[in-house]
Computed example of a mutant assay.
Amino acid sequence: MTDTAREEILARINEALGRRGGGEYVSSTPGSSAPANGAGAANGADTASAEVTATAADSGYHHEGTHTGEDLVELLIDRLVDYKANVHRASGDPSETIAQLIGAHGSVVVPTGLDSSWLAGFSGGIRVDAPGEELSVDDLDAQGGVVTASAVAIAQTGTIVLDGSDECGRRAITLVPDHHVCVVRTRDIVDIVPEGIARLDAHAPLTFISGPSATSDIELSRVEGVHGPRTLDVIILSD
Rank of each mutant, 00 (worst) to 15 (best):
E7N: 13
A36E: 13
G21W: 09
G92H: 09
E96L: 09
P194E: 00
L140Q: 05
T174A: 10
S49L: 15
D82G: 06
V193S: 02
G106V: 10
G196C: 04
R12S: 13
G125M: 08
V193W: 00
A149M: 09
L135Y: 07
N37H: 06
D58I: 10
A34L: 02
A155M: 01
G125E: 10
G145R: 01
I154K: 01
S210H: 09
H88R: 11
F122E: 02
R199W: 10
R187G: 14
D201H: 10
V109T: 04
V184F: 05
S116P: 15
Q100W: 07
L140K: 06
D139N: 09
S150C: 05
D166H: 12
A142M: 07
A204H: 01
V146G: 03
L76N: 00
D3E: 13
A155P: 01
G69R: 07
S33H: 14
A130I: 04
A42S: 11
L101S: 02
E133M: 10
G124E: 00
A85S: 05
L76T: 04
A48W: 14
A99C: 06
L135N: 05
N43L: 08
D139L: 09
P131D: 15
S28P: 11
Y83A: 09
V137D: 13
R187D: 15
G121R: 05
L17A: 13
A50K: 01
P111N: 07
P177S: 00
V108A: 01
T68V: 10
A85D: 01
K84H: 11
R222D: 09
A57R: 13
S59Y: 13
P229W: 00
T207K: 02
D46K: 04
E7K: 09
T53Y: 10
I235H: 05
A214R: 15
D129E: 05
